[in-house]
Nucleic acid binder design. Sequence first.
DNA 1: GAATATAATGGCTTTTGTCCACTAAAGGAG
DNA 2: CTCCTTTAGTGGACAAAAGCCATTATATTC
Lengths: 144, 144
Amino acid sequence: MLNKQEIEIIRQFNRKYTNTLGLLNKRVFNTELSFPEARVLMSITNGSTPMEIADKLHLDASYTSRIIKKLTKLNFIKKDVSVKDARSKKLSLTDSGIDLLDKINSDSDIQIKNLIEDLSSPQQQELYQAFETINNILFEIDGE
Amino acid sequence: MLNKQEIEIIRQFNRKYTNTLGLLNKRVFNTELSFPEARVLMSITNGSTPMEIADKLHLDASYTSRIIKKLTKLNFIKKDVSVKDARSKKLSLTDSGIDLLDKINSDSDIQIKNLIEDLSSPQQQELYQAFETINNILFEIDGE
DNA sequence: GAATATAATGGCTTTTGTCCACTAAAGGAG
DNA sequence: CTCCTTTAGTGGACAAAAGCCATTATATTC
């Protein structure tokens, strides 16, 4: 087990990265959507159910439902009743939802580039490796 | 500059770590304080001014003021008028604020330990190194 | 087929955060 | 020094984000 100083380094990271993510997620994308709404949109893959989204993002079912309702009204996603389970809905992005997602993704890429642009190339590589390491260890990669 | 796949790894980290931090910060400590209140408490060092806290945590001045008011009422911090600038307040923790901070710190340590306890010892070390690397590169260490 | 569980949703409330106006005190510029 | 502008802190009003609970409709289990 890590010692006290090592744990403290991780906690220090958490505190600072809370700030960083807070800032990144504030300058929300195209201002078309709020951050939680964008998060939901980004997490929808073809056939996702509202429950799956709520579980994945750790959102309340009710809150998730409202966000999905709004995204549907804005015509970014559509809801079809599941064939297998009439209680459940199958979500998917509309064409304009796909467009928006593309926009969000490219804007997010730019944010990341801004974050690292002042670093030297070796530092950027080292930073990238570190993120990849954490992804691998903590999130066992792949499973987006 | 990093390429598209590398940027995507960082974005993937951000998405997943948003979840992680969301969970860590939800099971808030002793439930005595909310997460933003705990954040403010943790950021107070002897002589901090409300403005400094607001800047550091990227909080609205008004919101910060209210949190400080509550922490003062709960007797975790105290406010003294600055000698140099009568508009400004100098904040410091009371004894019971120090106690609470200790409790929060030890609880936070436990959370981190839980997060990594299932990993092998080499993995924990690798993970720690990665966090340290990011701290160094992105936050230029030290400056808590 | 009755009891139980689950998905989605709406109403209501709380928490979190923003905006604006106001007070009091500094900090110039003349 | 006096006027003008700026800054620190605060409260009121409000908006956004998130959670809780009840309800409906459908599945599942016994």
